[in-house]
Simulated assay, not measured.
Amino acid sequence: MAGVPAVRGPRALLWRWWPNPLRRRSDKVEAWTLLATWAVTLLAGVLAGAATAQSVERSLARERAEWRAVPARLIERAPGSAAGSERVWAKVRWTAADGVAHEGQTRVEPGSAAGTPVTVWTDLEGLQVTRPATKAQASLRASLVGMLIGVSAAAVPLAGGRLLRGRLEQLRLDAWDAEWERVGPQWGWKTG
């Protein structure tokens, strides 16, 4: 077989689509299955990723629009000494827009005195929240979450297609076994 060149290029990749007397029906089914699997995988990944990224982006934009920085004051002296470089948790009190007083915790400089002004972030009800993501942070977060969801969504049809191809392969092997059971004994005198 040294004189027979190997088939390479697009024809080798698309052999199931070319007319060939040796091509079985299962080869055609597998070709269509493979094509459908990749199309659905690509479509599911892109659509799920894009929809998720837009949803996260809108949610973070809404937080930026609704959440407000509110002045608060330390209720008690913050733990630690001023020499410490890490910020520490301390109790604070603030008044919401509706006049209701709230308490919570925020990170402050160590050793800060009671009554020291600090800033906390609140939602529309005056409840404490984290600082909203900046526009750049929101874009990055939305992109990362979108990619993660897109890859996860693409994995489902990809796994389904792989299972279907495995089942087609098993059916093909079973058909070969059945055919050999029928034809094999006729060859016994030539191979034995």
Rank of each mutant, 00 (worst) to 15 (best):
A155L: 15
T119F: 07
V29T: 07
L74C: 02
P10F: 13
A48C: 15
A142C: 10
A72T: 00
G184C: 08
P19N: 09
V4Y: 09
D98E: 12
G160E: 01
A101T: 07
P19K: 04
G115R: 03
E109K: 14
P110L: 05
R107N: 04
V129M: 08
G192I: 06
W15I: 08
L164P: 00
A50W: 14
A138M: 07
V151Y: 13
P132S: 09
L140I: 15
A12H: 09
G99N: 10
A6G: 10
G84A: 12
G146S: 05
S85E: 15
V129T: 10
K28Q: 13
A178W: 05
L171E: 13
R87H: 11
R73A: 00
L13W: 15
D174E: 13
L158W: 11
P21R: 11
V56P: 00
A50P: 00
G111P: 01
E63A: 14
A96Y: 03
L14M: 14
W180C: 09
A83R: 11
T130K: 13
A2Q: 13
V100P: 02
V70H: 02
H102I: 02
A114Y: 00
A96H: 03
A175H: 10
R162P: 00
A36Y: 07
V118Q: 00
L34H: 04
L140P: 03
A155W: 08
L22K: 10
L144C: 09
L60N: 04
W121H: 05
L173D: 11
G192M: 07
T119P: 03
V156T: 07
G188H: 12
S85G: 13
P21F: 07
V151F: 15
K28I: 14
R165V: 06
A178V: 07
G111V: 04
A78L: 01
T191L: 14
S59N: 14
R16Q: 14
G146F: 01
P5N: 11
A113C: 05
T191Y: 10
K190T: 07
A72P: 00
G166I: 04
G184Q: 06
K135A: 15
M147K: 03
M1A: 14
R165L: 15
L144V: 13
G192T: 11
E86T: 12
V108Y: 00
W89P: 01
R24C: 09
D177F: 05
A12P: 02
A178F: 06
D27I: 02
R64P: 02
R62F: 10
R165H: 07
A78D: 00
A83D: 14
D123V: 04
G188L: 12
E169M: 10
R68L: 09
L42N: 10
R167G: 03
L164M: 13
R172F: 02
R182K: 14
P71I: 05
G99P: 04
V183H: 08
V183E: 12
P19L: 10
V70E: 09
G3K: 12
T130A: 15
